[in-house]
């Protein structure tokens, strides 16, 4: 389903898959001009590459969840006429965008190799692969579980759409993508427990950019993150259990 959705997305498109790269790239250019050149907020070594990497990951998260919260309504004919697992539409929304952004990541690597004056020591170490894998898995868990919660709620309460659009519009400014967010130490635990994208995003950035702090090494932050992620998974399970049977009658 994901593969066919992706194929359909770029069917009859002159630029095809390149659109999925162009969109975050233009977003990056806009942020770079405004924040680095005009407001002078974003600065530091390799700022442009760091910003671009952050924008790519945010676009992956934003587009996966945007596709995910509407997945039952979009795939109404499938879930109401064929017996398929009701996990399928929200999970397919995640895999569609993951395939899309995986290709973007390759383009980022090319730019990274071309743009970095020198690479961090041990860039291709096992430790870095492990951190990348864990961060990718935790972001995936956040997306899939959010998709399940939002997709179920969206069938019953159509207010979810404007609410989630607001969260995505402002969320990028509350996530360490455009600038460093100086979180006071006493609020760090709370911040990383609420913003479940921030920690894996910083962890991934720390692999490619030495100037990125390794917040995930702080035990209280890591524990708060894991607990918060576990709560999200539990909420998603409960929402699915309670609503997935009911929503078919409302579709």
């Amino acid at each position: 389903m994901s593969f066919m959705d992706l194929k359909q997305k770029y069917q009859d498109s002159m630029l095809g898959f390149f659109w999925s790269f162009l969109k975050p790239f233009l977003q990056f250019v806009a942020y770079y001009v405004i924040f680095a050149k005009i407001l002078n907020v974003g600065s530091g070594v390799n700022y442009a590459l760091r910003l671009f990497f952050g924008v790519l990951l945010w676009a992956w998260f934003a587009e996966s969840t945007s596709l995910g919260f509407n997945s039952y309504i979009e795939k109404r004919s499938v879930v109401t006429k064929i017996k398929v697992s009701r996990y399928l539409p929200p999970v397919a929304a995640y895999t569609t965008q993951t395939m899309n952004y995986f290709l973007n990541l390759i383009l980022f690597f090319i730019l990274y190799v071309m743009g970095m004056p020198s690479f961090p020591v041990g860039l291709l170490s096992f430790y870095n692969f492990f951190i990348f894998f864990m961060s990718f898995c935790s972001m995936s868990l956040v997306i899939v579980n959010l998709n399940i919660i939002l997709a179920n709620l969206n069938v019953l309460y159509r207010d979810i759409r404007p609410i989630w659009e607001l969260v995505l519009s402002y969320g990028i400014f509350a996530t360490p993508i455009i600038y460093h967010i100086p979180i006071p130490e006493r609020y760090q635990t709370l911040y990383y427990a609420i913003n479940l994208i921030a920690l894996p995003l910083e962890a991934m950035k720390s692999i490619f950019f030495v100037e990125q702090s390794k917040t995930y090494l702080l035990p209280h932050v890591l524990i708060a993150y894991i607990v918060s992620l576990a709560i999200l998974i539990l909420m998603s399970r409960l929402t699915y259990k309670k609503l997935s049977k009911k929503i078919i009658d409302y579709l």
């Binding site: 389903m1 066919m4 359909q8 069917q11 004919s77 499938v78 006429k81 398929v84």
Partner: peptide, 25 residues
């Protein structure tokens, strides 16, 4: 089930693609 035919069809895709999509579903 033959409750409604071609429910998962995507009009932009070819017949072959739709065969794979509908069949896997």
């Amino acid at each position: 089930p033959f409750l409604e035919l071609g429910v998962a069809f995507i009009w932009e895709l070819t017949g072959e693609d739709n065969l794979y999509l509908n069949g896997t579903l």
